[in-house]
Amino acid sequence: MLDIYLPILVLIGIAVAFAIGSVVFSGLIGMKKPSAVKLSPYECGLSPVGSARERVSVKFYLVAVAFIVFDIEVVFLYPWAVVFKQLGWYGAAVMGVFLFVLIIGFIYDWKKGALEWE
């Protein structure tokens, strides 16, 4: 039974060794001359203003989650488009139902105001 799991254990060992080796190697050869410019966070070339611990509006997270949900659902259109001719009318009907549910969810989010920045 060990011969079945041996490749998986070897892969896990290689992954752990690579992760630890990368951290150790970068610590050994990395530059060790910190300065105020190098230690400051990079913000599009501008000096950071304010604290990094400011509260962020929940609206940001709602829009982000809605974007991810709708983006992932639209990804399902690509495999359907590839095999559209083989699926025939059944595939078109199922995709129509899928798009209908997607549009209803989008309209619901829109009416609830989840996409508005106030």
Score class of each variant (00 low, 15 high):
L87Q: 07
I20K: 07
V23N: 07
D109E: 01
V16P: 01
I107F: 03
F60M: 14
P34L: 11
L46H: 12
W80I: 13
G45S: 07
V56H: 08
S22H: 13
F106A: 07
F106N: 00
R55G: 08
V75S: 09
G30A: 09
K59S: 09
S26F: 14
A36N: 09
F106Q: 01
W117C: 05
I20R: 07
P34D: 07
A66K: 02
F100P: 00
K38S: 15
A93C: 10
A66T: 05
V10Q: 06
V65D: 02
S51N: 11
L62R: 11
A15E: 04
Y42E: 03
S47C: 11
L99R: 06
A36E: 11
V58N: 11
Q86T: 10
M1K: 07
F67G: 06
A81R: 12
M95W: 01
E54K: 12
L99N: 05
A64L: 15
F18A: 15
V75G: 02
E54S: 12
L6R: 14
G88A: 06
P79F: 11
V69P: 02
K85H: 13
Y78E: 03
Y61N: 02
L2P: 00
Y5W: 14
P7N: 02
L115V: 06
V24S: 09
I68R: 04
Q86D: 12
F25K: 15
A52Y: 11
F67K: 04
Y5P: 00
Y90S: 10
E54Q: 13
D109G: 05
L6S: 05
F106K: 01
L2E: 06
F60T: 07
